[in-house]
């Protein structure tokens, strides 16, 4: 199964680090800041005024010399005139590169690649999208090479997909009355139980916790919008936590004890249960004898299998929480 220390060192130093270096330099050349200075102040061409509560005063008349702000002919008390804008800097490019390659969220300036300093132009945009997809897409080929069957690679990917592949083999095997096997190893009840857990852990964690959150009164205060949009905000928070992501539906105030705890639980269940399951399957399969490929073996590298795999992924993965996720935007569109 490989040596943990060797794998960790090689994947970090030979793959992630050189890639990050290239991505960081390319985006820095387009305008993503990379400096030890935290921020820069620049002059505003038109000064702006804020009231005592920090709210922007629209249509304000600003008298800079006497420091007086008037609105519709009346002087605004305790108004504040601001003549400088902050330009957030920092070590952005090197962090954004890691964030993109690791398919993380949040970003250096809080709104991911929507921020002009994190994604200055069309080229950085194209490059950042490519760097997001680079490693997941490449891993398909890595897997194919590792199992010495190039066709295997095209169509499979992460550990989650392996769970689905095993499930597909099982269902397809049942349909034609063959012993299910994958990569020449028999798939037996032990592997199947773990495979089901791998596939269902994420949707169950997301849906169960979102369901609980929907009936907890305090959660309503965290929402930025009401109605369908609010439901999406909440579901997104759990999906993001469950899906190895770091972003939140903007405006959602997730910093409450209830949400922090349930989101953390979602994260743990949706991430470590599948990993445990796949490792358990791997451990058990390593010890099994490799069966000879016969006419009776169900091929896992032809078009038929790919089709079956896609159907199973759609059936189990997508249908399990897609309807709930789609509910918000569709209800919003129809209202």
């Amino acid at each position: 199964m490989g040596n943990f220390w060797t794998d960790l060192t090689r994947s970090t130093l030979y793959v992630l680090m050189p890639l990050s270096l290239v991505v960081a330099l390319v985006i820095a050349s387009q305008g993503v800041p990379q400096t030890m200075k935290a921020a820069e102040s620049v002059e505003l061409m038109e000064p702006v005024a804020f009231d005592a509560d920090g709210n922007y005063i629209e249509n304000a008349e600003i008298d800079l010399e006497n420091n007086i702000v008037t609105l519709d002919g009346e002087v605004v008390e305790d108004a504040q005139i601001v003549t400088e804008e902050i330009v957030p800097l920092g070590l952005a490019a090197s962090q954004v590169a890691i964030k993109q390659l690791g398919t993380n969220g949040g970003g250096y300036y809080g709104v991911n690649s929507a921020h002009p300093l994190e994604n200055p132009n069309w080229f950085s945009n194209l490059f950042e999208m490519l760097s997001l997809l680079l490693i997941p897409a490449a891993l398909c080929f890595t897997f194919g090479r590792e199992v010495e069957d190039k066709k295997q690679g095209v169509g499979c990917g992460l550990y989650g997909m392996l769970g689905f592949a095993i499930l597909t083999v099982f269902i397809a095997g049942l349909m034609v009355g063959r012993t299910p096997e994958y990569l020449g190893k028999k798939i037996e009840p032990y592997e199947m139980k773990w495979a089901v857990l791998v596939c269902l852990a994420t949707p169950i964690a997301i849906l169960v916790f979102s369901g609980i959150a929907a009936i907890v009164p305090s959660v309503a205060d965290s929402l930025n919008n009401t109605g369908a949009h609010g439901l999406s905000e909440m579901l997104y928070a759990y999906s993001s936590a469950g899906g190895n992501n770091g972003s939140a539906f903007a405006g959602f105030g997730a910093d409450t004890p209830f949400l922090n705890l349930t989101l953390a639980a979602t994260m743990l269940i949706a991430r470590f249960l599948p990993i445990t399951g796949i490792l358990a399957i791997a451990g058990s399969m390593v010890q099994k004898k490799k069966l000879a490929v016969t006419a009776g073996t169900l091929s896992t590298s032809n078009g038929m299998f790919v089709f079956l795999l896609i159907v199973i992924v759609l059936l189990i993965g997508a249908l399990s929480f897609f309807p709930a996720l789609a509910l918000g935007p569709i209800a919003e569109f129809l209202s």
Binding site: L21, A24, L25, A28, S29, Q30, G31, V32, P33, Q34, T35, M36, K37, E40, V87, L89, L91, A93, S94, A97, L117
Partner: peptide
């Protein structure tokens, strides 16, 4: 990253 950026893309790397 900081060294190379400051050397070759000085204006861009500084905002």
């Amino acid at each position: 990253v900081t060294g190379i950026s400051q050397l070759f893309f000085h204006d861009k790397a500084n905002g």
